[in-house]
Amino acid sequence: MAPRLWIMTTFSGANINPLHRQRVKGREIVVTEESRLHLVWIHNRIFVKPLPQYLLSQAFWKTFLEEGSDRAGYRQSPLCKAATGFLRTYRYLIQHESDFHIAQQDHLRLVPKDTDWPSFCRFIAELGHIDDAAVSKRYCYGELRLTRLNFYAPLLLRKFHFEQVHGQYGDFFGRLYGPILFAFAVVSTILNAMQVALAADQLEASHWEAVWHVSRYFSIFSLVGAAVISSWFISLWLWIFLDEWIYTVRRKLEKKREAQGTSC
């Protein structure tokens, strides 16, 4: 799915909110040990994989990256690129000392407890030279919305969903209540307005002219109002959908032009 992630999110590895911004947005930081869920968010939750101790070791990087770069094909191995991209995400997650303190909270432990802020800053500063060519394709993007991943999963993964977060039937069907109730309310309003219009014709025969005018015009107003509101919601959804696609395609073309300019 990685080559097609540009469909779902901004084509930028820096599209990652620091931890304090996650709190500002009302998101709960949930620890996960699954790399595929790292920086995936849904509603008020975002999943973050803790930073392993060995990735903070200078000796580890010198042994497996610098010295290992002489070994045939090692530096370009998928595992090496994935580790480099994963580490780069923490450059954006922890940008301030407040982010560092959040990461070290006991219920999170995203960063090892024995790591201090000055040494972490020195280590992260050395990651500024990492570009997209040195990381796996997944880490050329930042945060991913789980609802979009689940929406496109049947097309791209041949699976019903990317990650099932609803463990109960009630949670699953609860997402459908809003649209169903809205459709039911619109249909009920239209039917009631039509019923009032038909009843108004009988009032005309009874010479209740004032009541007939009120009923007639109110039924027409209700029908037009229901049509306008429904059209507005549909148009708003289409506008948001198309606006996101236009922005996504524009970013994709910009990245393509930048890559062509760099190669030249």
Rank of each mutant, 00 (worst) to 15 (best):
V111I: 14
C140Q: 15
E163M: 05
L157Y: 06
E126N: 12
Y152L: 10
F162Y: 12
C121D: 05
L146P: 04
H161P: 02
I124E: 12
A125W: 00
D114L: 06
F160R: 15
L127I: 04
R138P: 00
F160Q: 15
C121H: 04
R122C: 07
K137L: 11
A133I: 06
C140H: 10
G128A: 11
W117S: 06
G128E: 15
T147H: 07
R148F: 13
L155K: 08
Y139S: 03
N150K: 07
N150T: 04
C140S: 05
F151N: 05
Y141D: 03
D114Q: 10
W117L: 07
R138W: 01
F160E: 15
R138D: 07
K159W: 02
L110A: 08
S119H: 07
L144S: 06
C140K: 11
L146V: 02
Y139A: 06
L155I: 08
C140V: 02
R122V: 01
K159S: 09
E163C: 09
A134D: 11
R122N: 13
L149S: 04
C140E: 11
A125S: 13
P118W: 08
T115S: 06
Q164R: 14
D116Y: 04
F120E: 06
S136H: 07
R145E: 08
L127F: 04
V111L: 06
E126H: 10
G142Q: 10
D132R: 12
E143P: 04
T147G: 10
V111D: 06
F160L: 14
S136C: 09
I124W: 07
L157Q: 12
P118I: 08
S136Y: 00
P154Q: 15
K137Q: 13
P112L: 06
E143C: 03
L155H: 11
Y139F: 15
I130E: 12
L157T: 03
F162I: 04
G142A: 11
T147E: 15
L157S: 07
H161E: 14
Y139W: 14
F120H: 01
